[in-house]
Amino acid sequence: MTTPILQVQNLKKIFTRNGQSDFLAVDGVSFDVAPGECVGLIGESGSGKSTVANMIARLLNPTGGQIFLDGEDVTKTDVRAVCRKVQMIFQSPQESFDPRRTLGDGIGESLLTAGEPASETAEEVARLLEAVGLSSDFMCRYPHEVSGGQCQRAAIARALAIEPKLLLCDEATSALDVTVQAEIVSLLSHLMRGHGMACLFICHDIALAQSFCDRILVMYRGKIVEEGLPDEVIQSPKQEYTKMLIDSVL
């Protein structure tokens, strides 16, 4: 049996204010993601999906539980320890690039911090842009000078730069219109197969999760209430909340 690329065990997050417990955002979440697998994490806004992703990327410290990345416990480490294995694609593509730096600077940053010489970075950035269907001209553009779809393609190029083992897509297509959504999902699917990357695909579009993911986890009030194959979950939901979620969309 293959070792999961990601193991999340009893993960908890309590947001505190002035030292007092305030809000239980994630309550004992456990799941695995196998290498090359695409797992959909769906649920309504405020259910804790993005908090889980932020904890996996070590952008947030968990209150409890464990996160194993490629067999290594990363719960106590910081983001720099995991950034070679995990990358994230954010909801709003334009806001995920520094407005004062070009897309080329943003894409090449992880290569520079990894120690790649600056002279080779530009070439590599051009290759990455080409891989996501953009010309090398986009290197010199600022985020506000490109469309949402182009910017999200650049964000995918940035995420691929260091060839991570796990890609976290946090509502990566929510801010895009339907045709661009389809293009981005198709591109992601193609690149994931090509690179053998696993993916945790966070969204609240059940139809999209059904077509893109190998497995679906349904979150509600910080807990995973249901999981299974997409067709199983959608056609015969076991939990009342899942039924309600499906009814509200279909």
Binding site: C83, R84, M88, Q91, S96, G106, S110, T113
Partner: peptide
């Protein structure tokens, strides 16, 4: 901001 999170994920000190 998302871009700072992205920069942190790029391994910036």
């Amino acid at each position: 901001t998302s871009y700072l999170k992205a920069a942190r994920l790029a391994g910036c000190s």
